[in-house]
Design a protein around this nucleic acid. Structure first.
Lengths: 217, 217
DNA sequence: TGACAACTATCCCATATGGGATAGGGTGGG
DNA sequence: CCCACCCTATCCCATATGGGATAGTTGTCA
């Protein structure tokens, strides 16, 4: 494996370089200048680029953006001390494959680098808390019940069946009531959620994590 | 630290229990029955609940949902062998604080549990690849979404609009085509997904993380 | 060039859905 | 006791949806 390291701390560069080379990783360059790093990356095509975030003139994030602008198809991993959510978010948005912390164990770091070279995304264990919240923010608000607060128990039950794709008639059969009654409940649901179709109701139910309680007895 | 373990593999339960107890973690219960586990959790208020995903009668996900329905405010961590993206996604959506893999080192596991008890979310290092993609909101285009594999680009586009709750007529207007054509596409979608209503299509789209690419092909 | 897939559009028809209105029975609180 | 709320049920009606069929145009690939 061949890497380029961009970091403004000379001491850190030397230390890490030795550490990587002990583990049979070739360090093509270990420098502080981001633009020079980009040039070297284009020239030497390393397997991965290690990038510090906090640097005096150029932020690591800017360098990351420029790497991507140059359409350099080499994985980049951030290697920093920052455990700020915003940094992680920005790094991933700008196309980093890895976000590693400088207090990792050397062998962990090397393992992470190997995974990244294999095409995986790797984020430091200490950041999974933040990452998890990010993932939940993008996919589903799990706090749920607020949106359904006004729904009666029966309406909630019918909404969950509706969200399985069941028609009014099927819901009626499952609950042992007339389909006309189900229709009425559905209309109440639409009114309370301020929407106009069962599809929207189903999507909201799924996104909010409403789950079918098949306590049908 | 006091934990309850719900797992259908007796051998695994015993092994893990011994392992945890060696490390000063009290295992209040180590059982296969999810409902009994919920009851014990209500009674003994452990610091964390360990939950297997793949179990014969009750899926671990169902148990997780029921724990949340009971408003039991105890962190739950999934402890499984599954590295499936869908499992991780569902677990987080249903409110799991942790997603750990059974091949973790014991000390890693214990460390993760301590973090979870402290209120952090922890996801196994091996899953950060998937988690990263989730955080970036990808999930759909990247892994070529098996379920949508046979949909044409136009059909995929229409499905994403459908999943926003739009009617055929609105979709038609948005795409600048006739509503009859939209109907035809929707029918093709239903046929290919082997379902019979647009509600099911919308739910599948949302659950699979299909996001509207308004990049217009 | 010819085959093929995709996108477009149209027709018919049965059923489902959404909106509106009304009303009896049950339950719980003031 | 009466009121409010929930669950049940029914009626009407306009529109949307799902299923089936046919067909012209375009672009691509063999």
């Amino acid at each position: 494996m061949r890497v380029i390291m961009i970091d403004d701390h000379a001491l850190f560069r030397v230390g890490l370089q030795g550490l990587l080379e002990q583990r049979n990783i070739e360090v093509i360059a270990a420098i502080a200048d981001g633009d020079e790093g980009i040039r070297l990356a284009q020239e030497h095509k390393p397997d991965v680029i290690l990038l510090d975030l906090r640097m005096p003139d150029n932020s690591g994030l800017d360098i990351l953006s420029r790497i991507r602008e140059h359409k350099i198809d080499i994985p980049v991993t951030i290697l920093t001390t920052s455990n700020e959510e915003q940094d992680l978010r920005e790094a991933l948005n700008r196309g980093a494959q890895g976000y590693l912390l400088k207090d990792m164990e050397p062998d962990e770091l090397v393992g992470a680098l190997r995974d990244i070279v294999k095409g995986k995304n790797v984020v430091a264990q200490n950041m999974t808390d933040v990452l998890t919240r990010m993932a939940q923010g993008k996919t589903a608000e799990n706090d749920s019940n607020s949106a359904f607060a006004d729904l009666t128990p029966r309406e909630t039950e019918i909404l969950s069946l509706l969200a399985e794709g069941q028609s009014n008639k099927v819901i009626a059969r499952n609950l042992g009531i007339s389909d006309g009654t189900v229709k009425l409940h559905v209309k109440a649901i639409l009114r309370k959620l301020n929407i106009h179709s069962r599809v929207e109701a189903a999507v909201i139910a799924v996104e909010k994590g409403l789950r079918y309680n098949k306590s049908a007895t």
